[in-house]
Amino acid sequence: MNKVEMTEEIILAKKNLDISWEEIAAKVGLAPVFLTSACLGMNSLKEEYAKKLCEVLELSDEIAILLQEYPMKNWDKTIPNDPVIYRFYEIVGVYGETIKEIIGEKFGDGIMSAIDFSMDIDKEKNPAGDRVKITMNGKFLPYKSW
């Protein structure tokens, strides 16, 4: 079994149990965004969380072992057609340089870590239409001179 097959089994189990990512994450003890990312093969889990996830989803020990393997963080470099994912490309295309400029002014020359990082996705009720609220929180990493 490989990571793709692992993900397929996790998604099928989730669907069969009719359980949300937030419910799974609460039972496992991890943040929903991180847990989902690991289930989709883009992060690894520590043994205790991998085993707990497999308990919750009634999956084999083989899945728990694969969840602990370091991922190959590789994705298709073409612009995706999926509207949700495409919008993030659009946001970076329109606001990327602005984000970089403001980070530079507030912190100096550097980047936001995607390793020392967390993200929350929330639903914000609004009379004009519900809003998607995404909060990204990453450690600032200054560039070094040498």
Score class of each variant (00 low, 15 high):
residue 130 D to R: 00
residue 38 A to C: 08
residue 102 I to L: 11
residue 20 S to M: 15
residue 27 K to F: 04
residue 116 D to H: 04
residue 109 D to R: 05
residue 74 N to H: 02
residue 16 N to G: 06
residue 13 A to K: 03
residue 109 D to T: 10
residue 45 L to C: 07
residue 79 I to Y: 02
residue 87 R to K: 02
residue 118 S to T: 13
residue 112 M to R: 06
residue 109 D to G: 06
residue 37 S to F: 03
residue 58 E to P: 01
residue 53 L to C: 03
residue 97 E to C: 00
residue 30 L to W: 02
residue 62 E to I: 06
residue 104 G to K: 02
residue 82 D to F: 01
residue 78 T to D: 13
residue 75 W to L: 10
residue 99 I to V: 07
residue 75 W to C: 08
residue 108 G to M: 01
residue 146 W to Y: 09
residue 85 I to W: 09
residue 45 L to H: 07
residue 37 S to V: 07
residue 83 P to Y: 12
residue 105 E to R: 04
residue 137 N to W: 01
residue 65 I to C: 03
residue 52 K to Q: 15
residue 74 N to A: 04
residue 102 I to V: 14
residue 78 T to M: 06
residue 84 V to N: 10
residue 12 L to I: 06
residue 113 S to N: 03
residue 138 G to Q: 09
residue 137 N to Q: 05
residue 76 D to H: 00
residue 135 T to Y: 02
residue 49 Y to A: 10
residue 1 M to D: 07
residue 132 V to G: 04
residue 10 I to P: 10
residue 129 G to H: 05
residue 100 K to G: 01
residue 82 D to V: 03
residue 141 L to M: 13
residue 27 K to N: 08
residue 128 A to D: 13
residue 96 G to S: 10
residue 40 L to R: 07
residue 8 E to V: 11
residue 110 G to F: 03
residue 7 T to Q: 15
residue 2 N to P: 11
residue 13 A to D: 07
residue 58 E to A: 05
residue 109 D to M: 06
residue 10 I to G: 03
residue 115 I to K: 05
residue 5 E to A: 08
residue 37 S to T: 15
residue 8 E to P: 04
residue 103 I to C: 04
residue 62 E to A: 09
residue 23 E to R: 00
residue 26 A to L: 07
residue 135 T to Q: 01
residue 112 M to V: 12
residue 136 M to C: 14
residue 43 N to P: 05
residue 54 C to M: 12
residue 78 T to S: 13
residue 51 K to L: 13
residue 119 M to Q: 09
residue 41 G to R: 08
residue 143 Y to W: 09
residue 126 N to E: 15
residue 18 D to V: 04
residue 4 V to M: 02
residue 29 G to F: 13
residue 57 L to N: 03
residue 117 F to A: 13
residue 145 S to I: 14
residue 36 T to C: 11
residue 53 L to G: 00
residue 24 I to H: 01
residue 54 C to Y: 08
residue 88 F to I: 11
residue 121 I to F: 10
residue 15 K to E: 12
residue 102 I to A: 07
residue 67 L to Q: 04
residue 128 A to G: 05
residue 76 D to W: 00
residue 82 D to K: 00
residue 75 W to I: 05
residue 118 S to K: 07
residue 137 N to M: 04
residue 75 W to Q: 06
residue 51 K to N: 15
residue 17 L to Q: 10
residue 124 E to A: 05
residue 22 E to D: 06
residue 2 N to R: 05
residue 106 K to Y: 10
residue 90 E to Y: 05
residue 1 M to Q: 01
residue 140 F to G: 03
residue 33 V to I: 05
residue 113 S to V: 01
residue 82 D to E: 08
residue 125 K to H: 06
residue 84 V to I: 12
residue 44 S to R: 13
residue 43 N to Y: 09
residue 46 K to F: 14
residue 54 C to T: 14
residue 96 G to D: 12
residue 96 G to N: 10
